[in-house]
Structure formats: structure tokens, C-alpha cells
Design a protein around this nucleic acid. Structure first.
Length: 285
DNA sequence: TGTGCTTTAGATTTCTGGTT
DNA sequence: AACCAGAAATCTAAAGCACA
């Protein structure tokens, strides 16, 4: 058995060189992606991808097959687009890649409303870091990206904003400052620092002409950074929506001047028409 | 040692064909 | 047309292996 999903997975593996990344892009497990490609190979009676050495690369025959598959899927999408235009409404899947943030949470309700109103358009939501989301958008794996701190000229639809906060261990000298005091990025830049999402945090300091000079730990995710601060590993900055409610063992400060994380939707150039339906719906709400 | 891929077992979903 | 049961397809989780 082979279906379009198999072919799309094959292209994703060929494009990313990784089964796990391809699986993530399509919302399945690595195993499912591996099995799908194996089934395709079995059905065709030939190996399309060399798994070793990594990253996975197409065999000589696989390169031709993949090129053909690409043309086939483009043709299929074109047919669907044509039909959608004739009958006046759009079909298909819209891939929405999000960086976890308050705006992404706020989007959940309007997205559900969209799904109810337009069941023929599937919204596939992907989650990743800023760098991953940027890459998916560039590679065409995502049609729309929800990104924090996006330059105005790229934005298609501006979403909400939230404040950046500083977290400091209870034993830190800053903890002796009055409640309500704000810390500057200059205060924090030279401190032992716990860094999460460097692609978001470093630019904050760089824009202020500062550099993090003493990064003690780079961790996966805001929660991990908050835990490290609680254990006294250093200070950190994080978006308000990501700051844990439990502030035992830490002190939370605003920043001076106040810094906002503004999120926006960015649309891939040449995205198919169903994307327009999604944007129009979200804009109206 | 961590990451990524494959294999396997078992669960769930979808399809198909028979019966009423 | 509606329902049901068995088959087939697809998925996930876990374990094991290979590699950088």
C-alpha cells in the first residue's frame, strides 16, 4: 500500500536528511516515518534512501524517484487548487509552525473556531524553536509561522505582546533590592547566566550593545532555565507567559527599560490559497 | 554518552464484504 | 441502507543497535 502521505514523508526525509525531523514535520513518530518509507521501497522493489552514513541520502535511483514524486505532488496540489477556485472554497492542509509563547496559546481558540467553520481545510500545527520554525518556513514545510520578535516588514498579522522578566536566585545580591525595582540588561549581562532559547535571548542583549559574558548553562526550554535559577546556577530572562507560577527560591523582576516580546504571523511566499482563508479568518477575530 | 534509526509487539482505526 | 465482524493498515512505545 502506498498513499500520498508516504510520498510526502519520503520527500520530507530527503529534504531534511533525517527521519526524526521528517516525522516531526508530519506529526508522526520516527517509527511511523521509517515504516512508511520502507513500505514505499518495498512496493517499488528498490532502495530509495541510504540510511548510512547519516544524514540519510537518496540513492541514484532514489534521486530520480524523489524528483518524480515532487512533480507528482505539485501537480496534485495544483489540481486541488484549481478545483478549489472553481467551487469557491479551498481544501487542503495548512501547516502552521509555532514557537511556544502567549500568542500561540491565545491562537488555540480562534484556530478551533476555524476548524469548525472550515472542516475541509486541515490545520497541521508544528512546534519548534525559532530557528526550527524559520527553517520550516524557508523549506516550505510550514505555510505560516508564528514567530516572536519578527521585523515589521515580514509580518503578515501582528499578534499579542508580553513582557520579558528577569529571574534571580533568592541568595543573589540582586535579591536584596526593593520589590518593584527593575533590572537593566546591563545588570544581567555580566552575571552567571542560565540560557534557554539562545536564539531569542541573545538578540535582546545584542540589540542593547551587550554580550552575555558568563553563560553557566544552556538548557532546553524556559522551565529548565527556571529550575536552574531556583537551584542557584545563575540568573535568567524569560517571557512572562513562560515564568512558572511557583516563585519559591527565586525573585522575579521586571526589566528597565521594559522589553516586550511581540509575536506575529509570517506567511511563506507562494503559499497556497487555503492559507489566505486561514489568515482572513484570524484577522477578522 | 547522546542521538537517531530499525524492529517488534500490541493497540487503534479504517476498510471490506456479508447479512439482515 | 444499516449494521456487524474480520482483515488490513497504521500508529505508538519500548528495546536494541550503530554511530559520532
Amino acid at each position: 500500500m502506498m498513499n500520498l502521505h508516504h510520498w510526502r514523508l519520503l520527500l520530507a526525509v530527503a529534504d531534511t536528511g533525517s527521519f526524526s525531523q521528517a516525522a516531526r514535520l508530519h506529526g508522526v513518530t520516527t517509527s511511523a516515518a521509517s515504516q512508511a518509507v520502507s513500505q514505499l521501497e518495498q512496493a517499488l522493489g528498490s532502495t530509495l534512501l541510504n540510511r548510512e552514513p547519516r544524514p540519510a541520502r537518496a540513492t541514484a535511483l532514489g534521486t530520480d524517484v524523489i524528483a518524480g514524486a515532487r512533480r507528482m505532488l505539485e501537480a496534485f496540489d495544483g489540481i486541488r487548487e484549481q478545483v478549489a477556485q472553481r467551487i469557491g472554497h479551498h481544501h487542503g492542509a495548512v501547516h502552521l509552525a509555532c514557537v511556544p509563547c502567549a500568542s500561540a496559546d491565545a491562537l488555540a481558540e480562534p484556530l478551533q473556531a476555524f476548524k469548525d467553520a472550515y472542516p475541509q481545510i486541515e490545520i497541521v500545527q508544528l512546534w519548534g524553536t525559532t530557528l526550527e520554525v524559520e527553517r520550516w518556513l524557508a523549506q516550505g514545510a510550514a505555510d505560516i509561522a508564528l514567530l516572536p520578535d519578527t521585523p515589521l516588514q515580514r509580518q503578515t498579522l501582528a499578534l499579542g505582546k508580553e513582557e520579558w522578566l528577569a529571574w534571580v536566585p533568592a541568595g543573589h545580591p540582586f535579591a536584596r533590592r526593593d520589590r518593584g525595582t527593575r533590572l537593566s540588561l546591563g545588570d544581567l549581562a555580566g552575571q552567571p547566566f542560565v540560557l534557554a532559547h539562545p536564539e531569542q535571548v541573545r538578540p535582546l542583549f545584542e540589540r542593547a550593545g551587550l554580550e552575555l559574558s558568563d553563560v553557566r548553562a544552556t538548557v532546553e526550554g524556559w522551565r529548565a532555565a527556571a529550575s536552574q535559577v531556583r537551584e542557584g546556577a545563575g540568573v535568567t530572562v524569560l517571557p512572562a507567559s513562560e515564568a512558572p507560577a511557583d516563585t519559591n527560591g527565586v525573585l522575579q523582576f521586571g526589566l528597565a527599560p521594559a522589553l516586550q516580546r511581540r509575536s506575529a504571523l509570517v506567511v511563506r511566499e507562494g503559499a497556497h490559497a487555503a492559507v489566505g482563508s486561514v489568515l482572513a479568518f484570524l484577522q477578522a477575530r
